[in-house]
């Protein structure tokens, strides 16, 4: 994997993980490689862990160059990030974690509550991850809420209906 580096405003790369070690970077550096939609802090790339010095002061000068500067520095342009702008606006923003998919509860309610409505909850957890991966955080949150309600409905109906059904059966059988 080849990485482009931006450390304190100075751009370098492409280098591989071994080359990153030799650059003597700090945790303030930004990296980009093919497949990433934008520059990320080097601390967010698990493959590069331990290859840089960890410093905890806030980023002041470490912002990457404007996209046009980047293309001036090197070729090929096709492998450059499409847009490095958002980083300049909010350099310290952490990516939002995926909203709850409720998958475990969907599985548990399907396998323990004896009601097919658990399947609906599984479909909603699928919806949550798909929307989250598309970048539709709002849609993911909505699907997450609906899915949670399906889990709750399944579990409550399961707990209520099973003893009721058993009682009815007992009263019919003897």
């Amino acid at each position: 994997m080849q990485y482009w580096i931006n450390h304190n405003g100075v751009q370098s790369g492409p280098v591989d993980a071994e080359g990153i070690k030799e650059l003597g970077l700090t945790s303030r550096a930004y990296v980009w490689s093919q497949g990433m939609s934008d520059w990320v802090r080097i601390t967010q790339v698990p493959e590069l862990e331990g290859l840089y010095e960890v410093v905890d002061e806030p980023v002041t000068t470490g912002q990457p160059l404007q996209p046009q500067n980047i293309t001036q520095v090197q070729q090929p342009t096709s492998t450059q990030p499409v847009n490095a702008q958002p980083l300049n606006e909010q350099p310290n923003e952490a990516p939002e974690p995926c909203p709850p998919t409720n998958l475990v509860w969907a599985i548990i309610s399907t396998l323990l509550c004896c009601l097919p409505t658990g399947i609906v909850a599984i479909i909603y957890s699928l919806k949550v991850t798909n929307k989250y991966r598309e970048g539709d955080i709002e849609g993911a949150k909505r699907a997450s809420e609906i899915g949670a309600w399906w889990c709750i409905i399944t579990i409550i109906l399961g707990i209520l209906s099973m003893p009721l059904i058993s009682l009815m059966q007992l009263s019919v059988m003897p």
């Binding site: 399907t110 396998l111 323990l112 509550c113 004896c114 009601l115 097919p116 658990g118 109906l157 399961g158 209906s161 099973m162 003893p163 059904i165 058993s166 059966q169 007992l170």
Partner: peptide
């Protein structure tokens, strides 16, 4: 007999994934 029976099985006669 104290344990509840599966609702789906009782109502439909078919086993559910959790039976």
């Amino acid at each position: 007999t104290v344990f509840p029976r599966c609702t789906f099985l009782t109502l439909t006669g078919y086993k559910c994934p959790g039976c």
